[in-house]
Amino acid sequence: MRRLPVYILIQTSGAMRGEPIEAIKVGLETMMASLRQDPFALESVWLSVTTFNRKPEQILPLTELENMQLPAIALPEAAGSHLGEALEFVCKKIDSEVQLSTPERKGDWMPLLFVMCDGRASDTLLFNKVIPVVKGKHFGKIVVCLVGNKVRTELVKLFANEVVNLETTDSATFRKFFEWVTVVVAEGNRSVGATSDISLPPPPPEINSII
C-alpha cells in the first residue's frame, strides 16, 4: 500500500490562543470527516499532528486515517515560538516515518506539510539552518496558514510553496481554509508524476493568498 503522509504542524502559543485553536480543532475534525468520504484518501492518507511553542511535541504519530482519532490540543502558558526547532523535528519524523522506494518496497507518496502559525520564529539561528534541510525533503507541497493580525510573511515564504493569511480568525474562515486543505490532500496522491510539483487547486477567495 502506498501511503500519502500528511504532516500538520500547529503553533500553540501567541496568536493561537482563544478562538483560533478552537477553530483549528473543529476544522481538523471536519477535514478528517470529509476525507473519510473520499475513497482515495480513506485508503491512502496517513496523518501526523505536531504542536509547538518552545518545544515541539508530536501529539499524533503518523496514523492511518481509518484508525485515527484527533487528540486534544493543549495550550500551555509558555510563550515563544520555536518554528525552526519545530520544522527540524518534523523533518526528523519524516526521515523515520516516511518510506522511500526500495526494490523490495513501494515508496510512499511525497509527504504534504501544513503549518499553522503566526510566521514568527524566536529561534532565528536554528530556523535559518533548518531551511535548506526542509527544502531538501521533497515535500509534495508545503502550505503555511498565517493566523492572527500581527503575522510575519518573510520567514515562512522561505520554505512554503503557498502562504495563506487568515486575517479573521472566526470559525467560518477556518472552515473555508480546511475545506481547501481537504481538496489539496485528496488531490495530493493522484497528481504526482510529470512535474515535481503536485498541482494545487487555487485557494478560495475568502483566504488571502500571499504567494
Binding site: 522511500l100 522506494s101 515508496g107 511525497m110 521533497h138 496522491n189 504526482v192 508524476g193
Partner: peptide
C-alpha cells in the same frame, strides 16, 4: 523507471 517516492517515473516526453 521509479523514483524515491510513489508516482515518480520517467516519460518519453
Amino acid at each position: 523507471d521509479g523514483g524515491e517516492y510513489a508516482g515518480q517515473t520517467r516519460f518519453l516526453t
